[in-house]
Structures are given as structure tokens and as C-alpha cells.
């Protein structure tokens, strides 16, 4: 999944990115239900693609919010996105087929409340705050859901808390060897939280370019997908995990090389072993 954005003044409007991100994330998450219909785990990689598209939307939301100078570092925005999103995601996993929609609605409610509290009670008075925190909570919830689908093949509450293993010839149910019980949700949380804030944090400055930042987001998403796919070897079949890993590697390689191209385009100069250029007065 690549992000082809033409460089125009201000770039693609935020609402367009939001709608595209929301729709593609939901479609990708629902496509992981192909696992249940076909009784395989081959379609887990759609969870990873959902992560990438949700992160692209989320990193642009962070750009909109942090352009105001919110008084804390950019990384804090990633933490609050996932902190509020993970609650909604966990509760939503109880709702079967409706889980992604429930996660979306619940996260939006939590994010709206947080935005209201920051703006009106803590008096931060930042115009984009309520909408941005609402969006980021949704992004957080859907990203963790995507990671869950990628690593375990689904996101039902039972599937996330138990795993079946054969021990000395007897089928055993294990709670410790699962997405929640093994603490993999903590890894998913931080993988997403760093990946969502890094692109704007890395590309901020007077020369910020939208296409470069979004390409970096896609790169961060695919990079997270690579390691999540490696972790998925423990919980889903090896063949399915290899499919996710190959897709992640191809996506990462493409976006990483494109990011280099875009950085070369925007940089003042691209030097190898050269001294500091002379500037006037210093």
C-alpha cells in the first residue's frame, strides 16, 4: 500500500485523508473475517494493512493537532491515542461481528470526552483538540485491533485470551500463551504509539512536506508489521505468518526506499564525508 500524494500547496486536505483512512481501515479489518469463513489464518495480513492505513490517517491528525503547539511533546499524542483506544478495543472484542464498529463508536466517545476535558476543564483552548483526540482514539482502537488480527488471526475476546496447545498428547487450553495473557498487547500498544507519532516528530520543521511525512508513516506501519508478523509465528500457522511477513517486507522496502528518495528531494544537500559548509557570519 503506497501513498501517492502530489505536492501541492498544503497537500491533500485532512478530511479527505480521514475518510479514506477510516474506510480503508474498516474494510481491511473486516477482510480478516475471511479467516473465519474459510477456516484458515491466511488472511491475517489484512490486519497489518489495517494498521498501516489507520496510522497514515492518525499521523496526519497528529500533524493537525501538534501544529498548534500543545505544550507537550509530539510523542504524548501517540500515547493518549493508544491509551484511550485500547480500552474501547478491548470492550468491543465482546461484540462478535460488530466489534470494529463498536470499537469505533466507543473510542470516539472516549476521545470526545478526553478532548472536552482538555479544552474546557483544563482550559487548553486548542481549536482542533476535540476532533483530533476523537480521531486519535479511533485510530488507536482500530490499530490495536489490526495488530490483534495480524498476530492471532482474529479479535474475539476468547481468541485473544486463550490458545489451544497439545501437551503430552492431550489438548490443553492455555491462557498465558495468548495475545492478552502473554502481554503481546503491550508490544502492540507501543508499536502503534511510536509509529503514529514518529512521522510528524521526525519531519517537523520549516520544510515539512505532507507526502514525505505520509510515506514515513507507511514505512513505520510496515516496519511494525514485520515484527508483528514475526511474533505471529507463535500463535498462527507458519504459512499464514510467512504470507504476512512477505507482504510486510515488500511494503517496508518500497516505502523505505521511497522515503529516501523524498528526503533527497527535500534536503538542502546530500553530502558524503564533507565538511560543514561555510555560512556567512559564522
Amino acid at each position: 500500500m503506497s501513498v501517492k500524494v502530489e505536492v501541492i500547496e498544503g497537500g491533500v486536505p485532512h478530511n479527505k485523508i480521514m475518510i479514506a483512512g477510516l474506510v480503508s481501515t474498516l474494510v481491511c479489518i473486516y477482510l480478516t473475517y475471511l479467516n473465519a469463513f474459510t477456516n484458515t489464518e491466511m488472511f491475517s495480513f489484512f490486519g497489518g494493512l489495517a494498521v498501516v492505513s489507520a496510522l497514515i490517517w492518525g499521523s496526519h491528525t497528529i500533524k493537525v493537532l501538534c501544529s498548534y503547539g500543545i505544550g507537550t511533546g509530539v510523542p504524548s499524542a501517540g500515547m493518549i491515542a493508544f491509551g484511550s483506544g485500547v480500552i474501547a478495543m478491548l470492550l468491543a472484542t465482546k461484540f462478535g461481528m460488530l466489534a470494529p464498529i463498536v470499537a469505533l463508536v466507543l473510542a470516539a466517545v472516549i476521545g470526545f470526552i478526553l478532548g472536552y476535558v482538555s479544552n474546557n476543564i483544563l482550559n487548553m483552548k486548542i481549536p482542533a483538540m476535540v476532533q483530533a483526540l476523537t480521531e486519535m482514539a479511533v485510530v488507536g482502537a482500530l490499530t490495536v485491533m489490526g495488530f490483534a488480527a495480524l498476530i492471532t488471526g482474529g479479535f474475539s475476546f476468547v481468541g485473544l485470551t486463550t490458545s489451544k496447545a497439545v501437551f503430552m498428547g492431550l489438548p490443553m487450553t492455555s491462557y498465558g500463551n495468548s495475545f492478552l495473557g502473554g502481554g503481546l498487547i503491550a508490544v502492540a500498544f507501543l508499536l502503534g504509539a511510536i509509529a503514529i507519532q514518529h512521522p510528524f516528530n521526525a519531519c517537523l520543521g520549516p520544510g515539512w512536506k505532507q507526502d514525505r511525512m505520509l510515506m514515513l508513516t507507511a514505512e513505520c506501519g510496515f516496519l511494525s508489521m514485520i515484527v508483528a508478523a514475526v511474533m505471529s509465528f507463535a500463535l498462527i500457522s507458519a504459512g499464514s505468518a510467512i504470507i504476512s511477513l512477505i507482504i510486510a517486507l515488500i511494503g517496508w522496502f518500497y516505502t523505505y526506499s521511497q522515503y529516501f528518495v523524498l528526503s533527497k528531494r527535500d534536503a538542502a544537500a546530500w553530502l558524503d564525508s564533507k565538511p560543514i559548509p561555510d555560512t556567512e557570519g559564522h
Binding site: A202, C203, A267, D272
Partner: peptide
């Protein structure tokens, strides 16, 4: 690497080059 490239490329206006080495 992405952090260094991103920050440095965004400072192009001030003439800060990206050093590959």
C-alpha cells in the same frame, strides 16, 4: 535513520545538509 533524514530535510531552508557518512 528516518528520524535523522526527516529532521535534516525539514531544515533545508537553513542550508543544513544531510550527511550520508
Amino acid at each position: 535513520t528516518t528520524a535523522y533524514l526527516g529532521r535534516t530535510a525539514s531544515l533545508a531552508k537553513f542550508g543544513q545538509p544531510v550527511y550520508v557518512d
